[in-house]
Design a protein around this nucleic acid. Structure first.
Lengths: 157, 157
DNA sequence: CAAGGATTGACAGGTTCCTGTCGAATTGAC
DNA sequence: GTCAATTCGACAGGAACCTGTCAATCCTTG
């Protein structure tokens, strides 16, 4: 009822758009990765360890997710043979997630599909519009990150 | 590795930004609604039935979610007393979700917090940047929606 | 080198979304 | 008016995220 100021209204619009786009992107990601036997979440994990093995916690930090979420995905990937846990010279308990041949093969397949798709979608949007969107969303994200950090609590993030 | 064309790269950047912003927005929404005893998902459902009672299926359509997801949230809201199921003159089995006094009170509280928050965040961003972001994200969403619709399957969406 | 703090993997449990299926109620075609 | 298609709520099960907690393993400090 109480009319929001223009800025606030625009910000709220952005929220709604982002929610919807996020849902569609997940759907698209699942569709892209399904033929390789993957899902969005699993594909993303594979992508992180593509440039080198890493611990579950390190992958989680890279992805901005909770350690435990990535653990679940990683275990699933391992039991499907896309990934193996290899010894970590720097840590006895924290083994390294490493791509198997099958994992690398699946990843390459998804990446090819992704490239074609991103190309098609990216080309269908005015370049200026696209880069403005990226910049605006990034700016909003940065503000929000600051806004959400009251003070870095001691333990776990 | 294989370098994506510029458009595709920008599109991929947008995806990453949207994923991150989405996560932060959910976090912010939960923080805004927690003092009222709600969460993002529950708040959104209350918002839909604020302008009048509706069936679970109708709410789901409005929100763009599966019927079953909203059912779960609605049941939780009902057992917490924010909502009740009232008789539906047009349908014997499909009762209407309706706000209770407590539900309306909680919703108003969250809306007030949301307004203050959106105002603060919205004002901290250059207006041009913000509207460009909204426009760009909307455009991307529309393309993606088209891209994802192969043909409207018969039953359930 | 010994103690304290931080990080890690494991496990438990919860939320919010999904798909799939079922029987009941409504609606539409004939 | 009857019969088929659709819509609805209920229930089962699963995916992907979360928080909280524990013991084991670092790592830093003194």
């Amino acid at each position: 009822m109480s009319p929001l100021p223009r800025d606030a209204a625009a910000f709220t619009d952005l929220i709604l758009e982002v929610f919807q786009l996020n849902g569609l992107l997940l759907q698209a990601g699942d569709r892209l990765s399904a033929p390789a036997g993957l899902t969005s979440a699993r594909w993303q994990v594979l992508g992180v360890i593509d440039h080198g093995p890493a611990t579950v916690a390190a992958v989680a930090r890279t992805m901005g997710l909770a350690r435990q979420s990535v653990q679940q995905t990683a275990d699933a990937l391992a039991s499907d043979g896309f990934v193996t846990y290899v010894e970590n010279p720097h840590h006895q308990r924290a083994k390294l997630l490493s791509l198997t041949a099958a994992g690398r093969r699946a990843l390459r397949k998804v990446e090819a599909a992704h490239a074609a798709w991103a190309n098609r979608l990216g080309a269908s949007l005015a370049p200026g519009l696209l880069s403005a969107a990226v910049e605006g969303v990034r700016e909003a994200r940065l503000r929000l990150e600051k806004d959400l950090t009251p003070e870095d609590g001691a333990h776990e993030t």
